[in-house]
Design a protein around this nucleic acid. Sequence first.
DNA 1: CAGTGTTTTGCAAACATTTTGCAACCATTT
DNA 2: AAATGGTTGCAAAATGTTTGCAAAACACTG
Lengths: 145, 145
Amino acid sequence: MRVIDKSIIEEKLKANNYKMTPQRRAIIEALLEHRGRFIAAGEIHLKTLSRHRGTDFSTVYRNLEILEKMGIIHKTSIRGGAAIYELVCDYSHHHHIICKECGKTAIINACPMEHLIENIEDKGFTVTDHKFELYGYCSKCYKKC
Amino acid sequence: MRVIDKSIIEEKLKANNYKMTPQRRAIIEALLEHRGRFIAAGEIHLKTLSRHRGTDFSTVYRNLEILEKMGIIHKTSIRGGAAIYELVCDYSHHHHIICKECGKTAIINACPMEHLIENIEDKGFTVTDHKFELYGYCSKCYKKC
DNA sequence: CAGTGTTTTGCAAACATTTTGCAACCATTT
DNA sequence: AAATGGTTGCAAAATGTTTGCAAAACACTG
């Protein structure tokens, strides 16, 4: 299991004919800095600005879309709110528990699908992907609330 | 296990001091018509209009919020997109498989949490809720794509 | 290291979604 | 009939995201 880092991401992008720009690098660095934590597009933009001033919001969105399509980041949202993003930290399949307060995440290595596939196939659905997320509070935020 | 219908919802609302208005009724009927299917706020608004013309979008949103807080509907979203809603069809805990094309859902009675609680508690998180959703295509939409 | 084709960017504007303040309304109670 | 408290439509704003376009930047090539 290879943990993701900057060079892996750059390789991947290159392999898909994406070029490395300061903006893109800044966005990736912002995400790396937040490893293990979901953040909103707005926060990513802010962090990116401090690394490469003038980066536009649209650039951030465009790059997040690219990174997501390449499986480098996860996109989700808490109860239908604004989208939040997180670096995929390694290549193994896993799920998350997400702090509703600060976005901190922990990995859940178990995947419920293993036990459920038979259960589902006779519903007539063809399953392409699944989401299993736990929400709650990390120890820090739990004390505050 | 009591399956939800119009009268249950009306009872619940009344018990919480909410009044039954034509608009609210129209919104609920629109949701009932879509039982077993997630729909977006925009669609609910459209359906509501045909039952009670002039109903404003804000009214729809306000009522969806109320219904959600009372546990009558579920709110979620597919990959960070716009919010989608569905009537909670019964009072038992369960999960969904959602068709990415038409929003049709099926119930998954198994809950992965049953087997996982121990696994998670030593991460320092206090779990308040969880989401387990499968995505794919229902038989109809699968043929089309 | 200039030339080339492609990608990427910033900007501005558009678009989509959701929320809010407010005055008016309605049903029920006093 | 006045008062109460939830509810609505309207208009506007806030929020979040996407797009078209011309200019700039990038990775190659020779």
